[in-house]
């Protein structure tokens, strides 16, 4: 139980922190290297971009837990508690469908790229490693959305997300 709680709270979080530190380090090193060592690195921007894409999709998943996605709630707020729950439930289902599309078609895309062997322009590593952020983000979102669904019906089992 404690393990699950730790996973719930920290799984994406630790990755988000480390990746942010990595990008800051990478770009700062790029600036320093240009002025201090007079040497331009050709792969740092590409690596930073790919880490960032991973960060975005994992961050989007964690943002579900932390209730940070931007939405319009005035219409839903017009209704009483029961109807509101129904609307929230439909919204979560729709969202789950999108996350499922990203997970499924993202996987297809990655398998396709594995087959065709495309490489990244600067580092010349397989590009599917970067693309895998999409299906992984989609799967994590699915998990977080199922969790939200459970929270919707049993509001006291887990503490409310805060930022």
């Amino acid at each position: 139980m404690k393990g699950i709680k730790l996973l719930d709270r920290r799984f994406e979080e630790v990755f988000l922190f480390l990746s942010m530190v990595a990008i800051v380090g990478l770009i700062f090193y790029q600036v320093v290297s240009r002025y201090v060592f007079n040497d331009s690195i050709t792969w740092s921007e590409e690596l930073a971009r790919y880490i960032h894409i991973w960060q975005v999709w994992l961050g989007a998943s964690f943002a579900i837990r932390m209730n940070q996605h931007i939405k319009v709630e005035v219409f839903r707020d017009l209704f009483n508690r029961t109807i509101r729950k129904v609307i929230d439930c439909i919204a979560l289902f729709l969202w789950f469908f999108l996350a499922g599309v990203l997970a499924f078609y993202g996987t297809q895309l990655v398998l396709n790229l594995l087959g065709t062997g495309q490489l990244t322009p600067a580092m010349r590593i397989p590009i599917w490693i970067a693309y895998a952020a999409i299906p992984v983000g989609g799967i994590l979102m699915c998990v977080r959305l199922i969790q939200q669904m459970i929270l919707l019906f049993r509001p006291n089992t887990l503490e409310e997300g805060t930022s």
């Binding site: 979080e13 988000l16 922190f17 990746s19 942010m20 530190v21 960060q55 975005v56 999709w57 994992l58 961050g59 989007a60 998943s61 964690f62 943002a63 932390m66 940070q68 996605h69 931007i70 999108l98 930022s163």
Partner: peptide, 21 residues
């Protein structure tokens, strides 16, 4: 620092997927 980095990442995730989608 840890908290600031995480907070920025979460807001960034919620913002950037708007671009992505």
């Amino acid at each position: 620092l840890y908290q600031c980095f995480v907070e920025a990442s979460i807001i960034n995730g919620a913002t950037m997927i708007i671009i992505g989608l």
